[in-house]
Design a protein around this nucleic acid. Structure first.
Length: 800
RNA sequence: GCCGCGAUGGCGGAAUUGGUAGACGCGCUGGACUUAAAAUCCAGUUCUAGCGAUAGAGUGAGGGUUCGAUUCCCUCUCGCGGCACCA
């Protein structure tokens, strides 16, 4: 048993006092930048699941340090946003006071785990010196025309009383509070992230070291689809309905056209529509539907016919009816589709309900008739000059035809939507824009940054679509930077994700007041070599950050197009009952208690040992006690002058190699098990270990259990920190096995083992095998058909 | 519905250019030490039959390739995650 409390405190202080983790640019060493997703400090503090990723990167960082790299492994806090603000409101505190207290608590909880952070590089997104550069980047985007004011209806959370981006929704509900989202038209700032859709998608292919699952999520989220836009002219009108389709090959089967109820064309067609009151009524019902009702796939399709309006199919001149229906989304494509009930299930369902004719234009093959609704590619029928072509070539020919005859064009659409960037809340970065009656929306000059968040009497969101900032009239009323006339400040704030979109750059140069990041320093440290965090950020933070970074690349602030070279997702730690750790289930394990009782090193080791890093698994305190026992066993080894057994030496050198390989591969569970095997072997020779070999054992343990290792290191007389010592080299000669156990199997079934010198020749091994008593018994009276020899592994004898 | 991932003892998990399935840890059983307990140390622990040597079965299910399959191929079941009326 060792006294973890005194040892851990002692070395934490020692490391801090000696500035062990202070890091600067050092061109004599290779750099390595390893990053964790910085935490969002909530009121309840960390549970044992949160630091899992931090422990892993810390072990990795310590190994790299010992391997001679200049390692940047920073930490900071993402502290703006709704949860902190809601917590402050609930506890009747100023959000800043609440946030500062939460940050302090998080920092304390991180410090007791013994991480290698250089706290002089800490960043905090709520620090005006930090968000000055968030605002600066926003203004740069504004100047490049990437930011615009929109009045379109957006997702509105009635509980959080703010507008939200598409990425902030889960199943049509607010990702934060679970409240159902409404559509609310309001003024907002929007960033044209869709301008970067193609690059964000294409460059995923430049990220071979990202986890495939995350890349796939991003591809789906961006949702590229290639097709055509086709003009259906409206009979007796100068209006045109543009539809988007990926299946132009089915167009001869089009029997009607559908507009989204919100499509602005509907209003324009009003004079022609003879059943306007009916149409209006339908639009009203749609408006009253919640998001959830609207997107429920099981619901009956509904719609209304626009009487008096008909559209002309440019391919065959056929006149078809026009409907509005809420199964067509206004936010995607043109907000209008051509309906081909014979070859699209949604159109089929709608056509059946409203008694619209269904016309077949595709067969599965030239000899096979399509039955019912056939949605696959096939061969065209009744399709004019395109009849008999296969779908793929017909699409190409038909797109050519469209373009040649000016009836439409090729078109690529993305599911990704522009980034709604306004929040009607207090606790966020103020948007540095001034509204002037004469000059319009005017960006604040750079010398007025940061635009600091003013104090306000009430932080409660108003719910009117105005931020609480709107009530501070002496802050709101200002002068126009352009004309000097009276003007008003923008009162919306930036979303939660703004500050986290570029924080990894600020660690490189955290105190720079002249630039977001110094170019030379950025060149030295960028890109982030390895980024570790939760998979839940795949389509939020990780898309925003890639976008923000590409923009900074375009304006010459950074040197690389992609911010994160390698990415790994951390698996969740569940409660002992297998459920997510939460107050609600009463299954939360607090790291403070574990550190106090069993020590930080035990916790570190256990979290790495419990399962493969990216898997989620349930906490088990007995398992933790097991890793603590292992540390006690290491502690109880007697350092001796005697020579170690060949077995111990052999295992030691294999372990030196395996542990380093496994850490670099993020296979911590097998690294820990390898060290356990080594220590078991030491106990097999009586619990004594030769001092020089013992030194190596302590060094390989150091990244996992830094406090205990540092203590054992100093106990054997070392003066400098163990982390200034080089990671041990293994001796390939000592790793070699002298003897190996070969398996002899008969027809693939193991029948005997053979202890032989490593590298034994086939003939010798075979002779030994055939001489084996057990084998002889099996071979008696049988015919040997084949003999297989795998060097140092096995012999298989096939008999009949 | 579409896409991705997965399924191995009582439990967490290990093993893949195809070569002893169950490493390591937990739990459990027995032993040593102790007046006793805890801690520690030692031994055992996939299932079935047998005192035992041993034999048979066994990596979600079924089939295939192979001297040999947890590993490769096909079909299916279940679980997890993401997206979802995206035309």
């Amino acid at each position: 048993m060792y006294d973890h409390q005194s040892i851990e405190k002692k070395w934490q202080k020692q490391w801090q006092d000696s500035h062990l983790y202070k890091v600067g640019e050092d061109i004599t060493k290779p750099k390595y930048y390893i990053l964790d997703m910085f935490p969002y400090p909530s009121g309840v503090g960390l549970h044992v699941g949160h630091p899992k990723g931090y422990i892993a990167t810390d072990i990795f960082a310590r190994l790299k340090l010992m391997q001679g790299f200049n390692v940047l492994h920073p930490m900071g806090f993402d502290a703006f946003g709704l949860p902190a603000e809601n917590y402050a409101i609930k506890n009747k505190m100023h959000p800043k006071t609440a946030t500062d207290a939460n940050v302090a608590n998080y920092k304390r909880q991180l410090e007791i785990l013994g991480f290698t952070y250089d706290w002089e590089r800490e960043v905090n997104t709520t620090d005006p010196e930090y968000y000055k550069w968030t605002q600066w980047a926003f203004l740069e985007m504004f100047k490049k025309g990437l930011v615009f004011e929109s009045y379109e209806p957006i997702n509105w959370c009635p509980s959080c009383k703010t507008g939200l981006a598409n990425e902030d929704l889960e199943d049509g509900k607010c990702e934060r509070c679970g409240t159902e989202i409404e559509q609310k038209p309001m003024r907002q700032w929007v960033i044209k992230i869709t301008n970067y859709a193609e690059r964000l998608l294409a460059d995923i292919e430049k990220l071979p070291d990202w986890e495939e699952s995350i890349k796939e999520m991003q591809r789906n989220w961006i949702g590229k689809s290639e097709g055509s836009e086709i003009n259906f002219t409206i009979k007796d009108s100068d209006q045109v309905i543009k539809v988007f389709t990926t299946r132009v090959d089915t167009i001869f089967g089009c029997t009607y056209v559908v507009l989204a109820p919100e499509n602005e064309l509907v209003e324009k067609l009003k004079p022609q529509i003879t059943n306007w009151s009916q149409v209006e009524e339908y639009i009203e019902t749609v408006k009253n539907k919640s998001n959830l009702e609207r997107t429920d796939l099981n619901k009956d399709k509904s719609g209304a016919k626009l009487e008096g309006v008909s559209a002309i199919n440019p391919f065959n001149g056929k006149v078809v009816d026009v409907f509005i229906a809420d199964y067509v989304l206004n936010s995607y494509g043109t907000g209008a589709v051509m309906a081909v009930p014979a070859h699209d299930e949604r159109d089929f369902e709608f056509a059946q309900k409203y008694g619209i004719s269904i016309k077949k234009s595709i067969n599965p093959s030239p000899r096979e008739e399509a039955i019912g609704c056939y949605t696959e590619d096939g061969f065209l029928v009744d399709s004019g000059e395109f009849t008999k072509m296969d779908s793929a070539s017909a699409r190409l020919k038909m797109m050519d035809w469209l373009e040649k005859n000016n009836h439409g064009n090729r078109k690529i659409n993305y599911k990704l939507q522009d980034w709604v960037f306004s929040r009607q809340r207090y606790w966020g970065e103020p948007i540095p824009i001034v509204h002037c009656d004469k000059c319009g929306a005017v960006p604040l000059p750079y010398d007025q940054l940061p635009l600091t968040l003013p104090d306000v009497e009430s932080y409660e969101p108003s719910g009117t679509g105005e931020s609480p900032l709107a009530t501070i009239s002496d802050w709101v009323n200002t002068t126009c930077p352009t004309c000097g006339g009276p003007a008003k400040r923008e009162t919306n704030t930036m979303p939660q994700w703004a500050g986290s979109s570029w924080y990894y750059l600020r660690y490189i140069d955290p105190k720079n007041s002249e630039a977001l990041v110094d170019k030379e320093k950025e060149k030295y440290w960028s890109p982030v070599d390895f980024y570790v965090g939760g998979a839940e950020h795949a389509t939020r933070h990780l898309i925003y950050a890639r976008f923000w970074h590409k923009f900074l690349f375009d304006i010459g602030v950074v040197n690389y197009e992609e911010p994160f070279k390698k990415l790994k997702a951390v698996g969740l730690i569940m409660g002992e009952d297998g459920r997510k750790m939460s107050k609600r289930w009463g299954n939360v394990i607090n790291p403070d208690d574990i550190v106090e009782k069993y020590g930080a090193d035990s916790l570190r080791l256990y979290e790495m040992f419990m399962s493969p890093f990216s898997d989620s698994s349930a906490w088990n305190t007995n398992g933790l006690i097991g890793t603590r026992k292992f540390l006690d066993r290491v502690c109880n080894i007697t350092v001796s002058e005697e020579t170690d057994s060949p077995a111990v030496v052999n295992i030691l050198h294999k372990t030196i190699k395996k542990v380093a390989d496994d850490i670099l591969d993020f296979k911590f569970n097998t690294a820990v098990s390898a060290m356990m095997i080594l220590v078991n072997a030491v106990y097999d020779q009586g619990g004594k270990m030769n001092k020089s070999n013992y030194t190596l054992l302590v060094q390989i343990l150091a990244p996992f259990a830094p406090h205990l290792s540092e203590e054992l290191w100093s106990n054997i007389g070392e003066k400098e920190s163990i982390f200034k010592s080089p990671y041990p080299a293994y001796d390939p000669e000592l790793m070699k096995d002298e003897n190996v156990t070969m398996v002899i199997s008969i027809n693939g079934k193991v029948r005997a083992n053979l202890e032989v010198p490593a590298g034994i020749a086939e003939a010798d091994a075979m002779a030994l095998a055939l001489d084996n008593e057990v084998i002889k018994g099996w071979l008696e009276g049988k015919e040997v058909i084949k003999k297989i020899f795998v060097p140092d592994k096995l012999i298989n004898i096939v008999i009949k």
